[in-house]
């Protein structure tokens, strides 16, 4: 009921701004696909490269549109897409004041979270994710011994967090409240910096541990070998996807169809191989399925 209410509210809000939004035909009429993105890991490097940047460039070319990258922030990425302020609240989403719509599509390794699902429409999952807890050699945390059961492993990780300072970033997939870190007895430390700076902040002593998505964790392991240590998982398996306005179903369908072709001809796998060669080590099933 709650979801229905929020979706209804969203639809009412979006329909109240018809001139600024638009589905596929409007975008085609405009001749430009505006890609909203936040520089994050190897999804968007901010210089035109990155898995999602290339994916969007291919998609724009596929549609015969000019590609334009619109950089935003994790806080503003959904408002810039929807044209309305949003905030996660107790697992749901609250809509606020109207803001200008700045883009048509969001692709920057955005994890599909329940509260986000209430605000945006997600494509077919494009990338796997899981949230891991990482620490440093200097910290006293030590990796768990995996049991073979993910839920049990998550429990093991959360059990050893009493008094541990854990770094996370609000509004993202490593939102500390999302993973109920405070309930474990840990000391949540809200990170105000760039999402990509979480691992450096950990090494800089901002906290004893940090939550990172697997893509980020793999990059951290590669960038700082021997300095960051994976303690264990704090979340079930997640997925990332491309986000659309709920009132742009045609654009969403077009993307899903396009994405399916890329998967079939192996182009997408090559892109993934280019930017995340290690992801096949952990989530090979995701791409073969």
């Amino acid at each position: 009921m709650k979801r229905f209410t929020t979706t209804l509210l969203l639809c009412i809000t979006l329909h109240a701004l018809p001139g600024l939004a638009g589905d596929l035909n409007d975008i085609k009429a405009r001749g430009e696909l505006r890609h909203l993105g936040v520089p994050y890991a190897n999804f968007i490097d901010g210089r035109g490269g990155g898995l999602d940047a290339e994916l969007m460039q291919l998609f724009a070319a596929h549609l015969g549109l000019t590609y334009r990258y619109v950089e935003t922030t994790w806080t503003d990425v959904i408002p810039d897409l929807l044209g309305v302020q949003v905030a996660a609240e107790n697992g749901g989403v609250l809509f606020g004041d109207a803001v200008p719509i700045k883009g048509d599509i969001v692709a920057n390794g955005m994890t599909i979270l329940p509260w986000r699902r209430q605000a945006v429409a997600y494509s077919t999952p494009t990338f796997p994710n899981q949230i891991w807890l990482l620490t440093t050699r200097a910290a006293k945390l030590r990796p768990i011994v995996p049991s073979g059961n993910l839920a049990e492993d998550i429990g093991k990780v959360k059990k050893i967090l009493q008094g541990v300072t854990v770094l996370g970033k609000k509004g993202t997939c490593v939102d500390l409240s999302l993973h109920r870190i405070a309930e474990t007895g840990a000391v949540p430390v809200e990170f105000s910096g760039n999402f990509n700076e979480l691992a450096p902040a950990l090494l800089d002593g901002a906290a004893n541990a940090v939550l990172l998505g697997v893509p980020d964790a793999l990059i951290a392991l590669e960038k700082w070998p021997g300095q960051v240590i994976v303690v264990g998982p704090v979340s079930e398996m997640q997925s990332m996807g491309v986000a659309f306005r709920p009132d742009a179903p045609e654009l969403l369908s077009a993307f899903n169809a396009f994405y399916k072709t890329l998967l079939h001809d192996g182009s997408y796998q090559k892109l993934v191989e280019k930017y995340y060669p290690a992801v096949y080590d952990h989530f090979s099933d995701f791409f073969t399925q």
């Binding site: 891991w132 050699r137 030590r142 990796p143 768990i144 011994v145 995996p146 492993d153 964790a217 793999l218 392991l221 590669e222 070998p225 240590i229 994976v230 303690v231 264990g232 998982p233 290690a278 080590d281 952990h282």
Partner: peptide, 16 residues
């Protein structure tokens, strides 16, 4: 040595 588990992390290091 720091007992990073095979499943969570060590495999990534191995593949690195």
């Amino acid at each position: 040595e720091l007992r990073m588990s095979e499943t969570y992390g060590l495999q990534a290091t191995r593949n690195l």
